[in-house]
Amino acid sequence: MDNMYSYDYQFRLIVVGDSTVGKSSLLRSFCDGVFSQDPDPTVGVDFNVRIVEVKPGVKVKLQLWDTAGQERFRSITRAYYRNSVGVLLIYDTTNYVSFTHVTSWLNEARAQIQPYHSVFLLVGTKIDRESERQVTTEEGKAFADFHNISFIETSSKSSLYVQEAFTMIAREIYDMLTEGRIHVQSGWDGVKTGPKSANSNQSQPIEIAQNVQPRRNGCCSS
């Protein structure tokens, strides 16, 4: 737990995709190292945290927001896009329909995040069930290339490429941050710098609380 406070950056990522594509399983596999066959359906949003090293010596805390996949929960989950710097678009490789819905997820995420820069990662899940595969790797790759986003296929069950997926998007965000294409902005939780000490973490933000959250257009300068 004391490790929780020694990191350089905090990235907030949102995990979206159809219901039962394995969002919660992917996060549990990544954060807890456990695979649960049938996690509770996410009602609203859930939340996970893990620290990864994007570069030797550079630690990044990933705040991972798990969202409900069912269409009608979008009214709730929509609010969580704004403060996210990265979006993991999840589809089930054994369910073609979930793949066809990726476009709408992507569009919604893009529309909601709009003034801020964000990084997308297309993640295909359940590749351990190769025999049931409905979406080929090529299809996924083509989609990702078309939309100019990264792509990876994973298996939460055998924890195959789960780590890679998260480090991939974390690195991409970190690179953009160092390139200056993404900035740490007050009033935006997408990217935050790590706390200097555990104590200052509590007292510091109270001052900011007095300020009204800057409007979206105020941050368009980037």
């Binding site: 609203g44 709730i76 609010a79 609380a209």
Partner: peptide, 24 residues
């Protein structure tokens, strides 16, 4: 105020209370 500072939105924890009536 604490929630506000932490940017901890009510829907994050309370939506399941209302949707499942504390059954979950």
């Amino acid at each position: 105020r604490h929630f506000q500072v932490e940017n901890f939105s009510t829907s994050t924890y309370a939506s399941s209370w209302f949707l499942t009536l504390f059954t979950n």
